[in-house]
């Protein structure tokens, strides 16, 4: 078959079809095909030689999953999963069919929305106005400008920006959690005060985003919120994590 193995994008329920021109990773992009006969099938393509996490291939992976999620539940694979051959994909499907089916039914009609809270970008004046400690250190610097005092002032500003973003992140998490089917913390991202993914009914995703946007508008001097989605349900692929509450916030 293919010498580089089989790139696996996702598992979907039987009965879904691919559009004839659907393509995936590689250059030129490899045509997609379906593998499996059971109640769950895999979306695959030939793997390109020397696959790496290039921007082009990351986009292709994401694009395939987005298209699939337009037409039904999708269990997304992490980027870069390569099976030795189609036979091993079939073996995997038959071996874990029940579990895959259970997760797919959990994800039916749902999308992932990711929320990141970062320190606000235009908040220096607000920090000075509202943070006593910063005001005090700033006054000290003005009385006697020196290196140490400047470092202390700058550190206080940085700390205040992070804390304000984290506090606002907790608030928005509290507000949005009741609107979601499930919530899980995202991977650690440097500089983010909060990174969290919500499993949301597809029909509710506009309302969800609008709520987040209203919060962002009202708290722009404390936090910069970034909302991404609707996304494939990357963070909800295990039926175990569907009820995991967010730790701490």
């Amino acid at each position: 078959m293919t010498e580089n193995g089989v790139y696996v994008y996702a598992f979907i329920p039987e009965g879904e079809v691919l559009s004839a021109d659907a393509v995936g990773v590689g250059s030129p992009p490899a045509p997609l095909r379906l593998v499996g006969e059971g109640r769950v099938i895999a979306v695959v393509s030939d793997a390109p030689p020397q696959l790496r996490a290039r921007r082009r291939d990351l986009m292709a992976h994401q694009e395939v999953l987005l298209r699939l999620s337009d037409s039904g539940p999708v269990l997304p694979m992490r980027f870069g999963a390569i099976a030795p051959d189609e036979e091993s994909v079939r073996a995997q499907l038959s071996g874990s069919q029940a579990e895959l089916l259970a997760t797919l039914s959990h994800l039916e009609g749902a999308v992932e929305i990711n929320l990141k809270a970062l320190p606000a970008q235009n908040a220096l004046a607000a920090v000075i106005a509202e943070e006593k400690n910063v005001r005090r250190l700033r006054a000290a610097v003005r009385r006697r400008p020196d290196y140490e005092a400047n470092v202390r002032l700058g550190e206080a500003v940085a700390t205040a920006l992070s804390r304000r973003a984290a506090d606002a992140g907790k608030k928005v998490l509290h507000k949005l959690t009741p609107m979601a089917r499930a919530v899980v913390p995202g991977p650690e991202v440097h500089g983010c005060a909060l990174n969290v993914s919500f499993l949301v009914d597809r029909s509710e995703s506009d309302t969800f985003r609008a709520t987040a946007q209203r919060f962002a508008d009202a708290h722009r001097e404390r936090v910069e919120l970034r909302v991404a989605g609707p996304l494939p349900c990357y963070s909800f692929v295990s039926s175990q994590n569907l009820r995991t509450p967010v730790a701490g916030g």
Partner: peptide, 9 residues
Amino acid sequence: LILDRGMVI
């Protein structure tokens, strides 16, 4: 999310 989440076999 693309690199650290999603199903792993």
